[in-house]
Amino acid sequence: MPSNCKIVVDRFRCAYCGACVSVCKNDANELVETFLVIDESKCNCCKLCVKVCPMNALSVESSEG
């Protein structure tokens, strides 16, 4: 999927609620007990998970070039 866009989770902010999992069409997010795992190969960087996060724990990491 788009190589210049990557969703990253701030584990210190995340309260492992699973809201981000519920909005992901591609099933790219998995809440494993108390930590979130994002499968980059499934993520299309639609950013819905970033918007739904109550804790502001998700963000887009853009790499130049």
């Binding site: 609620c17 699973g18 809201a19 519920s22 099933d27 997010n29 809440l31 918007k51």
Partner: peptide
Amino acid sequence: GVESRVGKWMGIDTTLKL
């Protein structure tokens, strides 16, 4: 729960919109 994946595996679209 809200992060349900069982439905998706079994063919029920439970994905939530914003």
